[in-house]
Write a protein that binds this DNA or RNA. Structure first.
Lengths: 194, 194, 194, 194
DNA sequence: AATGAATGAGACTTCATTCAT
DNA sequence: GATGAATGAAGTCTCATTCAT
């Protein structure tokens, strides 16, 4: 009657590996998480992991591929919109939502930048970040440096909201809304001064 | 009678270990940097490191002790000041300066949060961060959540300014000033609304 | 009613496994060639190999069985002939031909003697070699050691001709004939001095 | 009282590793010999091997460097001599002697050609072989193919003598002399027809 | 103040093989 | 006739650490 009886597990091992891996990566970091640990927590052998993923790095790559799709879509969408303030607000809104949905992965990104840099996806992540920043500040390439900082800061505020305050305050959703508010203020200022 | 007395030499090697270690930790992350690497780059044996430091963790602890002293002093100083807006601005100003001085270490902190959490100093770092945030928002415990986020965001903006924009823009000092400006704006707003 | 009856298909895949396996064994050696590699190059799963062969060793055994039959027949034939010089020349001639036909396998034998020794067929291969040498030197058990060496050398010359010169010279067939000539000279000398 | 007490062993670990490794490589082949096996037979840990050699391949490289020096010197010497028949005989004589001295390594070479090809030294070994062949046939580039084969065959005869007959006959030294005799005959014929 | 030699634990990875379907 | 999923054993290698000298 358990919801995850052996029979039910059939065929979803790949998914379960991803789940456990993400959990552990976010908790302990990428390097400190061994495949042995992942396998043990799943009740399979290390070799089983290698049936589903070619390398350890492959596991994390697959996680990024699955979980950052919303962001890629967001970027593609935004690039076709006019560079209005409203569009920028929408970008922040949807980015914040994506973060709420894939909290573990974003926490992982935030806390493992060093590991990320050595991995193949590091470059991709970086590019995506730059793309977002570009979107937020488009229409004002020659804007004062301060305004460019505001755009970057807006994104970081969303991250900060999720990562840092979460450890402290009560309702995560409320905190997220507050962070979104502050971020929106920041780009509004940046936009206005263009 | 040699021109470098034993005491000086001692300090010398110890210091060189710290320098190289910080360089590598910042570059590659804590876990990915091995003692072998540090020793090789210094032209000594691994065993020599153990003459100066009890463990690998000890090396990083010593780095934090040496390099975060300014922050500790800043906190102690600020805690004795009245909670005025001017004091908060001064906190940000001095924090930003400290970051400029110990850039590698702050980069390390930012990029290795996962490693940090497992280390003894992790707790210390976290406490210091909370202490700073508390200082910035003091006088308004019951302030709207949004204002609390602004305080956190102000600190993160300084980090963001250092870490992120650095990869992109020209003069780091100019960027630092811009980030300081944005951060100051943020706490000004937070303070005003109290 | 399909144009390829089950029997044919069976033979088909089995044969294709053998072909690919021999190719890879000859190219990379027995130990360095994994079943995964064979399966991948065939576009089937590893498990499929196990439908046709009981073990990895079984694959190579089957190759030897199929490809060394001419040698076995040659030996049986020669053992019933009178020990004349002409018979010995015929042995070399046919051995050389067999090698040309199963070049990959002979290359494999030459380059993987170490692996061969650990395998069950190793013994068989060795026996066959001894049988050939015996045939070549029969009629002169008490011949000077030098002549016995000549017989062994004759066989090795054929191998050397195939393996070594092949990497260097132009027409393989011409080289083979030259090697055969030298080998024949050797046993002629050995025979003559008896 | 034993000739290899722990105290005596001090400092010669590197040498002992080489000895044991060569023994096992020759016996079982390169791939089939694991570092665990080598370490166990020596009574040290695997990690100790890595203190003395950077990789498994490094061990075999060091063996070749140490044991094939005589051949390199032989080649250098011969290249400065006039291409007389007497010089060629001397080459074979000294090559045969070198083989007797480093029997294990030459057995290894003969039996692990496949492994060798994948290793860095493979190329070196091959070059050396070609250099020897060139020396033996110099002065008759346009000689009939048959004579070129004779030169190669001469070298292979020495190998064959060592490897093959050894398993069978009595006194190895006598066999070696016989092989040398046959090899010398071969190049004499080749030389005469130039 | 530092080295040389070694260890024990554990990392990632690959392999031949099995078995239910 | 073949696959999908998994295993157990083993492989090479790296790491932080120790200790006698």
């Amino acid at each position: 009657m358990s919801s995850s009886s052996p029979q039910q597990r059939r065929g979803d091992t790949r998914q379960r590996i991803q789940d456990v891996a993400l959990e552990l990566f976010a908790e302990q970091g990428y390097e400190k998480t061994s495949l042995r640990e992942i396998a043990e927590r799943l009740g399979v052998t290390k070799a089983a992991l290698y049936y589903h993923f070619k390398t350890k790095e492959d596991i994390i790559i697959s996680l990024f591929e699955d979980l950052t799709r919303p962001i890629d879509e967001l970027i593609r969408w935004a690039e076709e919109q006019p560079r209005t303030l409203e569009m920028k607000r929408e970008v922040l809104r949807r980015y914040s939502e994506a973060m709420a949905g894939g909290a573990s992965l974003y926490r992982f990104m935030q806390e493992n930048q060093a590991s990320l840099r050595e991995l193949t996806i590091g470059e991709t992540v970086k590019k995506r970040l730059f793309a977002l920043v570009d979107l937020l500040r488009t229409g004002q390439e020659d804007a004062p440096l301060v305004d460019q900082v505001r755009c970057v800061s807006a994104l970081f505020t969303l991250h900060a909201g999720m990562m840092f305050l979460q450890h402290v305050e009560g309702d995560p959703e409320e905190t997220r809304q507050a962070a979104l508010q502050v971020a929106t203020d920041l780009i509004t200022q940046a936009h206005g001064q263009a």
